[in-house]
Design a protein around this nucleic acid. Sequence first.
DNA 1: ACATAATCGAGACGGTACGTCCCGTCTTGTG
DNA 2: CACAAGACGGGACGTACCGTCTCGATTATGT
Lengths: 204, 204, 204, 204
Amino acid sequence: MNVRALPKHAVRGRGRPRSAECDTSIIEATLALLAEEGVPGLSMDALAARAGVGKATIYRRWPTKDALIVDALARLTDEPVHVSSTGTVRDDLVELAESVRRKGANSLASRIMPRLFAAGDNEELHRLYYERVIRPRRDRVAEVLRRGVASSELRADLDIEQTIDLLAGPIVYRTLVCSHHGVQLSRSYVESLVDTVLDGVRKR
Amino acid sequence: MNVRALPKHAVRGRGRPRSAECDTSIIEATLALLAEEGVPGLSMDALAARAGVGKATIYRRWPTKDALIVDALARLTDEPVHVSSTGTVRDDLVELAESVRRKGANSLASRIMPRLFAAGDNEELHRLYYERVIRPRRDRVAEVLRRGVASSELRADLDIEQTIDLLAGPIVYRTLVCSHHGVQLSRSYVESLVDTVLDGVRKR
Amino acid sequence: MNVRALPKHAVRGRGRPRSAECDTSIIEATLALLAEEGVPGLSMDALAARAGVGKATIYRRWPTKDALIVDALARLTDEPVHVSSTGTVRDDLVELAESVRRKGANSLASRIMPRLFAAGDNEELHRLYYERVIRPRRDRVAEVLRRGVASSELRADLDIEQTIDLLAGPIVYRTLVCSHHGVQLSRSYVESLVDTVLDGVRKR
Amino acid sequence: MNVRALPKHAVRGRGRPRSAECDTSIIEATLALLAEEGVPGLSMDALAARAGVGKATIYRRWPTKDALIVDALARLTDEPVHVSSTGTVRDDLVELAESVRRKGANSLASRIMPRLFAAGDNEELHRLYYERVIRPRRDRVAEVLRRGVASSELRADLDIEQTIDLLAGPIVYRTLVCSHHGVQLSRSYVESLVDTVLDGVRKR
DNA sequence: ACATAATCGAGACGGTACGTCCCGTCTTGTG
DNA sequence: CACAAGACGGGACGTACCGTCTCGATTATGT
């Protein structure tokens, strides 16, 4: 747990150790360039120049531009969501779903994240992103759901994984696929979403 | 309806007309290269060589590589989903959701689609993809949902758009974001998904 | 004969032909950069920028920087030496030897030539330089020597090739190896050299 | 006399003294790499690795790669030429010229020497090479020539420096410039050369 | 004996140049 | 006009070296 998103360092050997300042200046330059110029403007040359670093210094740490982006983005994502263990399950789910929405609404993250979702080409990168970013969040939702089952607020035969999909999927899908005309999701959408997942759409 | 994904042709003018053979050989070479080499292997030079075509001939038809990919992908996507107008709403929704799942399970489409979802950079491409691929499918689901409301199978205060998100979102999300270890969704997942959307997860 | 020092062109094919303007602008930029910055300042990037040309355009014509330098230098070397067919052999030899000295005294050529002499690594380049620059000059001297033998000015058992070495060798050797303290050879050195080769150093 | 080509050592001070083993292993690695990979293969990184030495250890001893090469080459060159002070001048000159030829015939030296002749760019290196390698050899020839003048074997008005050029120049020139198709000079060429210099080419 | 100080191997560092690949445009000759 | 071929200016790529700089460990010397 709490696995920090840092470049892998060589085994502590005999030579000069890698500079931690480089790590941070590269990550910061990455985020700055992404914010200012967008993904297409993030060339390794420009990045190295911006970070005041040789290109080799970057490649010594990250094998790929995408791997670097993952780490840089993880820095942005480290926003701990507070979930009360006393309120109703409904309120906790709203809060967790809200954190997904807010991340998607963040201009920088929402511009970069799709690139990572799209990293199906790069199996390793995709796995990394899932382990480091997606899974921890899913785990937190699963926890809340299990609490709901235990307290009989939710059905006992609940499929936990699928329910997580039902909470996160629509928000991600909307943000990525249907984000035309700059429409952004509101909090009320999220609240309504949670309620619908809880009660279903069938007439009763 | 049935808008074909073809390149815009010049107004019928004086000189030699554009060859239809070029259109097809380019599209076919695009799909072949994508299937064999993946997105990174689809360079315009390689494409032209593979199609036996000059690069200018491609640019004469499509302004962008992405536009070409959209058209090529649309070719793969033109699978009309049959929806009975007699069965239950539940069965129709299952059928429509299944078509989403099948598309995602297709190895080629699932490699290219993320790129299109991620096309947030390219506003125009994103709009094009939405108009040509996403919206028609959403419209069909909306139709079924409205029928369900009319027949009192579904709640009258239903948010149609959000319900579509609830049906498509989880599948897309799972396919793109959580598709680790090669796990693929099954038909039973889709059926269960539809049932959960209909009935909710709250204990009653 | 009269083999021009030009980059090899592809067989006249169907595509766009190579631009002659590029040839010249590249050669000119090469000579300019060499004159201004010297050999170490002749980077392919700087050259391309100076010539207003993409790097690929250079590599399309010359496989190596050295090959390019040979061609550029050949441009400088195309100075036809006038040899009277009426004067004495001694005067003709002085004139030919003088042209060797003058070339060595030329600041640009004398800076680059050694690099080519030193191209022993690159067998092909060395051969090229010999064929294109050295041999033609040796042939002209050989001609004069044969005339001298015919007219009984020179010994009949003369080793022509070695005599050429005796005329050119000392000048080249002095220029390259002993060119310390900026000392330059004078015309009188050349005249004295020819006379010594003719008469020998032995006391008589 | 017999100035050894060794790196300058720091004044005998307090800290750990420089290891003599490093000196030799670096020089040996230099010669080995030059022999195996040629000049372009002699990178400082490769050299350090081959010598089992840190790069700083090399730079602590030699300011430049070229300076190192000079020293390494001097090791190969320290072949004392024996010149009888009793034989004829002609025989002594043949022996000295032979040593020039043999050095040129040595595959390693002949690969490196041109680089040093061509060191016109690097004034300092060139001077160093001249002082350490060229001048001593010229001095020995000058000595023999002066003896010849004294003994009336040679003309009294002899230009000593130019005569040295006449003996060494042709051999060097042939070796460097005209060494095409792997032709190598023979001893008989050298003997004939000396005789021609002594007697001239003019018919008598 | 022990601190001092320069050495050692290792290798990271900021840079520069390399030669290749691709992009999107332009220029040929041939239908 | 369209077409195949392919050259063009430009930009980014990832690698190789350069010469300098830290590291921790080692090794003689002068106290």
